[in-house]
Nucleic acid binder design. Structure first.
Length: 568
DNA sequence: GCCGTTTTCGGCCCGACTGTTTTCAGTCG
């Protein structure tokens, strides 16, 4: 669908037609359950933004593996042009022009033409354009070489964003400063950093900002807007507005683009025009500036929508009728049920982990080291596990202020058996099961393994259910509906693993699972004291999944978890 | 292409910056 959208863009088709395909592409990409199956069951049309034409194309693709409409587009334009079009600074118009007038069919052609100065004579282009194109190709090549997916983990970017915000807030001319964009929405990965500032002296703010040592270069600068790049290869956009319209700017640049489109559409139907500079009742034409985001939403008749929900996933309708969820917050998490120690691949002792957890204010902590088949990590045999349990019990008696529990992250073996006998598992306080091998099995087989584990009465949760590693490995294809139903039926929890490159379950999957009655746990999977920060990333993902305190099991006391599961 | 407490047709978010086009198109977010 995305490829069709790109081709239509190149072909100069109606933007709304293009947007329709892009919306469908985004919808399918993020959709937690199989789009192909939904299509076959005739349920695709129920999805917002899917109509007759797109449904037909999906069905055609499912049946034949191709789409004739797309094949015809491919015949008309070389595929390499799509890459050219995605270069920053290039768009459909320029791409089409260089294709038709300079014979460029792919990136290599473009590079040659730019080097030979053959582009500067085309309408709308000059020497500067060629220079920009060559730079863009260089960056693109570096990214494509694989060391960089272009999207960085939120956890890697946020500390730098906080530094920038602190530097801005320290300026005397600055009334307020925040980071916005996908970072503020707690997306697991971000492409760039958006900074917004309230000030009456944008010139001074931008001048001071441009001197920060983290910035490699300033790429563009206007009166209120500055674009720069950091040495870490991150693009930073800075926008400055007067304090009385700070709320408008923050709202606008927090996005998402989809949320803003939906919000503006909603506002327009009620007679308002929203931009980053204010809210305008169309009738009066009077421009109302908002110092806070809450005012923006309030003016058009909505409750305040937390940034994590701003993805055009029904939040506007929910805000309209006062049905927004009361999202879980980090302090709600009372215990961590999945951490490691130096008994396997953790880096510090049981005691150090326990003290770190207590310092973070947790009420209970369950050690779930690896089981024996993960030899690489020094996985625990039944004997060593019992020895560890004895040490945990002794530690629990000695350390005040936190309850220490003995558990295991037991491997679900390739044949579906668990890596430890039931009689061993039955002696533990908590058991989480997970897959570390047999990733390439057919999805249905993997589901059988997970579901089989969940039906074992000793197993209390499933750790990192999809096995994905962001930027490194796709997860195995999980059937979240099936997992959620079995979870609800057996009282097994599904983990939201807080590791920055896992965040697994994803927000979308967690939201679906909660809707089907499953309960989740947010865990750090910490291997060292610093990893307890993972709880923060995990809670961010949970919030993006619309989860409330009640959807998570470890927001309650340990006693509420310790109880036997229903039916066992 | 999608969609409907303004509509089955006529809408669909909006403004800044760049580069070069002397009045604005293209791109971006």
């Amino acid at each position: 669908m995305q490829t069709i959208a790109d081709y239509l863009d190149l072909d100069g088709q109606s933007t709304y037609r293009i947007i329709a395909y892009e919306k469908a592409a985004a919808l399918f990409r993020e959709h937690p359950i199989s789009v192909a199956e939904m299509a076959q069951q005739g349920g695709l049309r129920r999805l917002p933004g899917v109509g007759e034409a797109i449904e037909k194309k999906v069905l055609e693709y499912v049946a034949t593996g191709d789409i004739e409409f797309l094949a015809r587009l491919r015949d008309r334009f070389p595929e390499g042009l799509l890459t050219v079009m995605r270069l920053p600074g290039m768009g459909p118009k320029k791409t089409k022009a260089i294709h038709e007038q300079a014979g460029v069919a792919d990136l290599r052609d473009l590079e040659r033409a730019a080097r030979e100065g053959r582009l500067r004579d085309l309408p709308g282009m000059g020497a500067k354009t060629e220079e920009n194109i060559l730079r863009a190709i260089e960056t693109w090549t570096a990214v494509a070489a694989g060391q960089d997916s272009g999207r960085k983990l939120r956890a890697a970017v946020e500390p730098q964003a906080i530094k920038f915000v602190e530097a801005l807030r320290a300026l005397p001319q600055v009334a307020a400063a925040d980071f916005a964009g996908s970072l503020r929405r707690c997306r697991s990965t971000v492409r760039d950093m958006d900074l917004v500032v309230a000030s009456l002296d944008p010139e001074a703010v931008m001048a001071a900002f441009a001197t920060l040592p983290e910035l490699a270069r300033v790429e563009a600068q206007g009166e209120t807007k500055l674009a720069a790049a950091t040495y870490t290869g991150l693009n930073v956009d800075l926008r400055v507005v007067p304090p009385d319209s700070y709320g408008d700017l923050l709202q606008h640049f927090t996005g998402s683009a989809e949320h803003n489109v939906a919000l503006r559409g909603y506002a327009q139907r009620r007679g308002y025009k929203i931009s980053e500079y204010g809210v305008e009742p169309v009738e009066s034409g009077r421009h109302i500036r908002c110092a806070t985001e809450a005012e923006v939403y309030e003016l058009v008749g909505l409750r305040y929508i937390p940034p994590e929900l701003r993805e055009d996933q029904g939040e506007i309708q929910a805000a309209e009728v006062g049905m927004l969820p009361d999202l879980v917050e980090l302090p709600d998490v009372r215990g961590d049920l999945h951490v490691h120690s130096d008994w396997t691949d953790g880096r510090v002792s049981l005691e150090q982990m326990a003290l770190a957890a207590r310092d973070r204010g947790l009420d209970y902590l369950c050690f779930c080291d690896h089981s024996q088949s993960l030899a690489m990590t020094g996985g625990l045999s039944p004997e060593r596990l019992m020895a560890q349990q004895a040490e945990i019990r002794a530690l629990d008696a000695r350390i005040e202020g936190i309850r220490l529990l003995s558990g295991i992250e037991v491997d679900i073996l390739a044949d579906g058996r668990l890596d430890l006998p039931d009689e061993t598992l039955a002696r533990l306080d908590f058991v989480t099961a997970s897959i570390h091998s047999g990733f390439s099995q057919p999805p249905a087989r993997i589901m059988e393994r997970i579901v089989g584990a969940m039906r074992n009465p000793c197993v209390r949760s499933v750790a990192h259910p999809s096995g994905r590693l962001i930027n490194r490995r796709e997860g195995y294809e999980i059937d979240i509906d099936l997992l959620a139903r079995v979870a609800a039926e057996t009282g097994t929890f599904l983990e939201i693993n807080g590791f920055p490159d896992r965040l697994d379950l994803t927000a979308q999957a967690a939201r679906r699972a909660a809707a089907l009655g499953a309960r989740m746990v947010v865990c750090s999977d910490a291997h060292s004291p610093g990893d307890f920060e993972n709880l923060r990333w995990g809670v961010g993902e949970a919030r993006r999944g619309w989860l409330t305190k009640a959807d998570l099991a470890n927001t309650g006391a340990w006693e509420s978890i310790a109880e036997k599961r229903p039916g066992h």
